[in-house]
């Protein structure tokens, strides 16, 4: 961390905050404060430069046109790549996940360049849109319980050699490539299709980001009563959705 407080950067809430993405910011912030950390939250609008000195960067989902506008603006801003070079943690969801890759299909049906921070590229799926509860087993190296979330996307994301799948789908579509993968990660950069918001459904993921930012292997315990109740309900709902 750069100084005494954790710098939590929310990238482009004006464009990429359509599916409750604010929730991811609020949960990370809340769980940091519950552990006694000072948090400096920095909301970066798309006409402002992305700071390079953040500890955790969150990038949310958005509709197709704002996604293109966000990619156009992020491509000419060196902030986020520099932050990653500095070892910052980046967690991205849906449209934000696609932007972190090499390219995606924009609202005009054209190939739009991303930032190349994750070795993935996204295309548009031919089949039905993936909409519904999703349940996935996380890459065991991350040591997290199963991910639960809500997905709503037409995109298909193909993973290159430079990333690992974030999780393996048990229920739902995930990356949409048919190989059962969901999301991608490399070092400190993460991408997922999960909404819900994902941090509200998976507080252990929020804690993982905090541990990486603080470079510690454990955090003081937090009260997870309601998170756990919600997780139990949604995991059961996903299993039921599958058997239905």
């Amino acid at each position: 961390m750069s100084d005494s407080s954790l710098r939590l950067v929310w990238v482009y809430p004006d464009l990429l905050s359509t599916y409750g993405d604010r929730g991811n910011v609020l949960v990370v912030e809340r769980r940091a404060r519950q552990r006694g950390l000072d948090v400096a939250r920095i909301d970066v609008r798309s006409d402002q430069p992305v700071p390079t000195s953040g500890d955790i960067y969150l990038i949310g989902g958005g509709e197709d046109r704002p996604q293109r506008l966000a990619a156009e603006r992020l491509r000419v801003d060196p902030g986020l790549p520099r932050a990653v070079d500095n070892g910052a943690i980046v967690f991205s969801v849906c449209a934000g996940y696609q932007i972190l890759g090499h390219e995606f299909i924009n609202d005009l049906g054209q190939r739009e360049a991303g930032l190349g921070l994750l070795d993935v590229h996204s295309t548009r799926g031919e089949g039905a849109r993936n909409v519904g509860d999703i349940l996935a087993e996380v890459d065991p190296r991350l040591g997290l319980p199963p991910l639960t979330g809500f997905e709503n996307h037409q995109g298909v994301t193909h993973l290159g050699q430079g990333v690992s799948p974030l999780a393996t789908v048990q229920v739902g579509g995930g990356n949409g490539t048919g190989d059962g993968t969901e999301g991608a990660w490399r070092d400190t950069v993460f991408g997922t299709y999960l909404h819900g918001p994902v941090m509200a459904r998976n507080p252990a993921m929020a804690d993982l980001l905090l541990k990486l930012a603080l470079d510690v292997s454990a955090l003081p315990p937090a009260d997870n009563t309601w998170y756990d109740a919600l997780r139990g309900e949604r995991i059961a709902a996903a299993r039921q959705q599958q058997s239905a």
Binding site: S17, Y19, G20, D21, G23, L26, F150, H195, P197, A200
Partner: peptide, 9 residues
């Protein structure tokens, strides 16, 4: 609508 994420907006 089956997505409750909006509660966070």
């Amino acid at each position: 609508g089956t997505d409750t994420s909006w509660l966070w907006d």
